[in-house]
Design a protein around this nucleic acid. Structure first.
Length: 821
DNA sequence: CAGTGAGCGAGCTTCCGCTTGACTT
């Protein structure tokens, strides 16, 4: 009772205060609070809502739906296969509050304007909104705009339309198809390969790309040839002209013969060709190209780029970052023109309009550009945000700048009696144009530093003195592994995935363990060099180089390989690179009203589902991907490698014998070590795995053992575990190294403890990954940001923090679902 | 997260596309 009364008085006090404030501020306040907002506009993003509200004025309330407000249930199939594939939609729990807020405003409004994006998903969002909020058709208007400018929005308001149910149906077809594929394929993988795996229209094809690239690399055989480069001395006696033989020579013998033929030859300039070359700027950024350039120029991961871009967008500095459009608004074009004029001069300007080439683009937004193009830099924000902003601005401006004009000169050097010719190519910039501001990078590192500069002045028929000619053995390049960004580019080419999903999909395929992002050590290889000196001697040498060194590249794991091979065998049609492109054609027909969405799904399901049944019915004696390596000479038992419940393992022995009788001895298992693969592991290596756990040595009169566990190789000592770093392994680690590791770990543990209390040893203040925290009875508690030095906390302070944290509802326990019978 | 894995067996996992925070140890 007393609590309640306090509350009431407090509330009353607030009211009085508010009244006072209100009266004093009335002239300013009145308009905003008194005028009932007749119009409710709903957009997808809150940042957009904020901007638009400013354009529309006081009669419009603008709210955000935060994307979709309704979806299929996340844990149930939710598609009624027997009755026309009717989807069962629900409002997800974390959207309930938002939906009820939207509803209360919608109920009060005289008109609700559904302003979600103009694409399939956007149309569906509007439809779901109208369903969930029970909007009255006569009071509901659907509007669209592609750019967030006042004129575009006012124009949209003047031209409302109805919800396009055909487009909505195309989205439902997309949604239902993805659910069917994902929720029918994944359980097959759980049963046949490993629990918790997943398959889907987009992720499985992405994994396939990486798997096939890796296999191409494994299959690849480098072909050698000889590249010949000559240094000629010009008649002035000092200038060197470097020229390359246009043909590559087949082998050492041919190279030798060629160099021999050059000994007495008299070289001269036999041709000079000049021709103008122009270079044009790249189109403004889309999500995909931004991710690629930010990776190349700034070293950002795809996820990082999106996070930084999101911040820029929320701060109102750039336009929307999830887009497939290269289009710039008229306003943007006009300011770009003005900025180029002001900063570089009129001759640097060139009006350009770009068109999207990528498959399945829906172009609901503008290209990614600065909101205010004239702002060269941003003053607030992190270093990353500043760098990304400048990249976006340069790209945008450059896209409206003049071509670069170059003059390319090709000199040809020949000699009597020699059939082949040497050429030297030089480029001279006549007009830099857009290159003054921005140059697009290439994935091929050689491209990026292939700067051919100015050639020395020569005249036709000039005689050259040969200084040196070298023939160097060069090899053809193996295909390159995908980076996150180059995978996105390939996905976009194939039309799989959308700007909003590129980053999450890449995360998913790594989380499932199909793919890892990592480094690959290169291998040494030797190559021949033949050098002809001006005195006519030919010297041969053998040099070495490292090749195939890779950093931060995507590589398939054993699980990825096995899952991919399995899906390729039983569901080749879904794994087809153009599966998505083909179903998109269906969706387009649905959107045009030319076909029924559930008929289209039915056509697919009638073919797809029997494949599912057939695959499930197959009884195999061995696990998918299992390989018999041979027999263990010690036990005379078979040795296998396969995907176990926790990943790749080697196995000695079977649980049952040939007659199906249970063996007395259980099989033994050992996880594979880093760098090993079930595809390539050999018998001896597999048997050696069973040497673990092995005794490494003694420390403080106790035994240290080494083994490989769930989290990699470790040392076990006194019942405690210490991880072995990548520089060593469970097999190789020595007694001394192990002792060093244990000492290190002890020191770190000591540093971890900031403070402890004698009265209550269970409370500890520890240093963790995210800074100091309090640990009590196996649970962790955050220290409030107001505390500067955690050392100063007293026992009472800590107990208070624990108590207060304990009162807050724990999310985990509330999300537990009640189970069905 | 904790150093396992042939089975007595519950219940769980999973898709793609829209959107942001809240929170982590």
């Amino acid at each position: 009772m007393s609590l309640l009364s306090v509350k009431i008085t407090k509330r009353a006090l607030h009211l009085v205060l508010f009244e006072l404030l209100f009266v004093s501020l009335q002239p300013i306040f009145q308009k905003k609070t008194r005028v009932m907002q007749k119009n409710l506009v709903i957009v997808e993003s809150p940042a957009k809502a904020k901007t638009i509200e400013k354009f529309l004025g006081k009669e419009y309330k603008v709210m955000s739906s935060y994307g979709h407000v309704r979806d299929l249930k996340s844990k149930e199939f939710s598609v009624d296969i027997e009755h026309g594939y009717v989807p069962k939609y629900v409002v997800p729990t974390d959207k309930k509050k938002l939906v009820s807020e939207l509803k209360s405003f919608a109920d009060k409004a005289e008109c609700v304007w559904l302003a979600s994006d103009e694409d399939r998903e956007g149309e569906a969002i509007s439809w779901h909104l109208s369903e969930v909020l029970k909007l009255k058709p006569e009071l509901t208007k659907r509007i669209v705009f592609h750019e967030i400018t006042k004129s575009a929005i006012l124009k949209a308001i003047e031209n409302p339309r109805d919800i396009d149910i055909n487009l909505v149906n195309a989205q439902q077809a997309r949604r239902v198809l993805d659910r069917i594929v994902g929720f029918e394929l994944s359980p097959i993988l759980w049963r046949k390969i490993k629990p918790s795996l997943s398959a889907g229209r987009v992720q499985s094809v992405s994994v396939r790309l990486i798997v096939e690239q890796e296999r191409q690399i494994n299959k690849f055989k480098a072909k050698a040839s000889y590249r010949v480069i000559a240094n000629f001395l010009l008649p002035d006696g000092t200038t060197i002209l470097k020229a390359e033989l246009t043909k590559r020579l087949k082998d050492l013998e041919e190279a030798n013969a060629f160099l021999n033929s050059c000994i007495k030859a008299q070289f001269k300039i036999s041709d000079i060709q000049k021709k103008p070359v122009k270079k044009s700027p790249a189109a403004p950024f889309t999500t995909s190209t931004l991710q690629q350039e930010a990776a190349r120029k700034l070293g950002f991961s795809v996820g990082q780029t999106m996070m930084v871009a999101q911040h820029l967008y929320e701060a109102g500095l750039i336009t929307y970052m999830r887009t497939d459009s290269v289009n710039l608004s008229n306003l943007a074009l006009a300011t770009a023109k003005e900025t180029v004029h002001n900063e570089y001069g009129e001759n640097y300007y060139n009006f350009r309009q770009y068109h999207t080439k990528s498959k399945g683009a829906q172009e609901a937004h503008e290209a990614i550009r600065p909101t205010y193009i004239d702002n060269a830099t941003i003053t607030k924000g992190t270093a990353q945000e500043k760098r990304l902003y400048e990249l976006i601005r340069k790209r945008t401006l450059a896209s409206q700048m003049a071509d670069a004009q170059l003059e390319r000169t090709t000199l040809t050097v020949t000699a009597e009696g020699i059939n082949e010719r040497f050429t030297a190519v030089g480029e001279v910039m006549v007009f830099d144009g857009f290159l003054k501001l921005y140059r697009e990078s290439s994935d091929d590192e050689e491209d990026n530093d292939k700067e051919s500069g100015l050639l020395p002045k020569v005249s036709l028929s000039e005689i050259l003195e040969m200084q040196e000619i070298t023939a160097t053995e060069r090899f053809t390049q193996r295909p390159s592994r995908y980076t996150e960004a180059s995978l996105v580019r390939r996905m976009e080419e194939l039309g799989i995935g959308r700007p909003s999903t590129y980053a999450p999909i890449i995360q998913t395929i790594q989380k499932r363990g199909y793919v890892i992002k990592g480094d690959k050590e290169g291998v040494e290889r030797s190559y021949h060099v033949l050098a002809l000196s001006k005195t006519g001697e030919i010297k041969e040498s053998l040099n070495t180089e490292t090749t195939g060194n890779d950093r931060n590249k995507l590589m398939p794991t054993d699980i990825g390989l096995v899952v991919n091979d399995f899906l390729m065998q039983y569901f080749p049609s879904v794994l087809e690179y153009n599966f998505t492109a083909n179903v998109e054609k269906d969706f387009d027909r649905i959107a045009e009203g030319k076909s029924k969405w559930n008929a289209s799904i039915d056509k697919f399901y009638k073919v797809f589902h029997p494949m599912v049944d057939k695959t499930l019915a197959i009884k195999t004696e061995h696990k998918v991907g299992e390989r018999l390596l041979g027999t263990d000479p010690k036990s005379n038992k078979p040795v296998y490698v396969k995907i176990g419940r926790y990943g790749p393992v080697a196995q000695i022995g079977d649980s049952v014998d040939k007659n199906g009788e249970k063996n007395a001895e259980k099989p033994r298992f050992s996880p594979l070590m880093e760098g090993q693969s079930i595809e390539t592991l050999e018998l001896e290596e597999a048997i050696r795995l069973f040497d673990l756990p092995r005794t490494v040595g003694m420390f403080e009169d106790q035994e240290m053992t080494a083994a490989v566990g769930r989290f990699g190789p470790y040392i076990k000592f006194q019942g405690k575990y210490v991880s072995i770093p990548k520089t060593s392994s469970a097999m190789a680690i020595t007694e001394e190294e192990a002792i060093e590791l244990i000492k290190d770990k002890r020191k770190k543990d000591k540093e971890r403890l900031i403070k402890q209390f004698d009265e209550e040893p269970e409370i500890q203040i520890l240093n963790g990954r995210f800074g100091p925290y309090i640990s009590f009875k196996k649970k962790n508690y955050k220290i409030p940001k107001t505390i500067e030095d955690p050392k100063t906390l007293s026992l009472e302070d800590c107990q208070k923090i624990i108590k207060e944290a304990g009162e807050k509802p724990v999310r985990k326990s509330t999300t537990r679902r009640t189970k069905k019978k």
